[in-house]
Simulated assay, not measured.
Amino acid sequence: MSSAERAEVVPARVFGEVAEVYDANRPGYADELVAEVLDYARLGGSSAVEFGAGTGKASTLFAARGVPLVCVEPDARMAEVLRRNTEGYGQVRVEVGGFEEWQPGGRSFGLLYAATAWHWFDPDRRWELVHERLRPGGAVALFWNPHGVLDEELFRRLGEIDRRHGVAGSPHGQLAHWYDGAPGTGSAADAENWPAAEAGRDGRFTDLRSHRFRRQVHYDTERYLGFLSSISTYRVLAPEAREAVMAETARLLDARGGGIDLLHVSDLFLARRR
């Protein structure tokens, strides 16, 4: 599957069909991360644009700080929930569109950000489009929420379930101590997607920075299954396969106290258009 096909199929058809579940169960982002982004961006009243806004997990945090914001989301069902979540903020505009196809209509922005969405964008075009949409000196902020399991025995047994059902890339696929290092380190996928090297090679961006924020979270079984049901690696399974892996995961979590403790990581990359 090409990057363009992946960007069309997964966000538009997989997440949108569970928009309410996504909104209820996906974790948000650290307040410290938002503060770091805004301190770096120095907007001074300039607008920001968010791509892959989803249901507003990041949008509401920026909106609550008074940022004039355009939220761009490719799936109309996700955008409907996003509008509901941001309707109390008069300075927020929601537009339906994909990262590659969206047209700014002569607008430029002091901040462009993407929350757990950058990896869906066309790698051959994304830095060019970021450059076009930012005013000179404007900031780009890219961030993700990886997780690490604190209980090594639970990690091992969940991994066995995932392998039996052909699941890869679940939130419990890493151990917490893997995230003791620098931002962008942890799993192989984290390192592969970390944007610092791409931005450095591009040459049109400067002042590259990386930050990592950590906190421990607990999910009871029901909420954790809701979280898993919003993850693309589960959404692409056949319904009967998804039901089977969810049931087996639930039995294990219930047998081990009724939930799971995770290290919740927020990794942030910042750069500035020259």
Rank of each mutant, 00 (worst) to 15 (best):
V18F: 09
S59I: 06
T206E: 15
G90H: 04
V265T: 02
I161M: 01
F15A: 07
V245H: 03
E73M: 05
D267W: 02
A63I: 04
L38S: 02
T206M: 00
H172I: 10
G105D: 06
A114F: 12
R235V: 05
S187E: 12
A176L: 06
A168M: 15
T249G: 10
Y179P: 04
E17S: 09
L112H: 07
R26D: 06
A199H: 08
S47P: 07
M246V: 13
R201W: 10
V70I: 04
D23P: 10
E80S: 15
L252A: 04
S170V: 09
G166S: 12
T86K: 08
A24C: 13
D202L: 05
Q103E: 14
R65E: 04
V217Y: 02
G28D: 09
Y224E: 05
S232E: 06
E192M: 13
R242I: 01
T206D: 07
A53P: 08
P136D: 11
A199Y: 10
L270Q: 01
S108P: 01
D207V: 00
V92K: 13
W118R: 12
A79P: 13
T221K: 04
L253Y: 09
D151T: 03
G200V: 07
R272M: 04
A244C: 05
R13F: 11
F205N: 00
D39F: 03
H119W: 15
S210G: 07
R84N: 12
A117C: 14
V96S: 14
R42K: 12
A35G: 12
E128A: 11
E192H: 15
R251F: 08
A30K: 08
Q91G: 08
T55I: 12
E240W: 09
G181V: 08
L69E: 01
G16L: 07
G98N: 09
G54D: 06
G44H: 05
A19E: 13
L33W: 00
F15H: 11
D124A: 15
H119E: 15
D122F: 10
V21Y: 06
E50N: 08
V92D: 15
D267M: 10
L142H: 04
A79K: 11
A139N: 05
G138D: 03
M78H: 14
E132P: 01
P136C: 01
V149A: 10
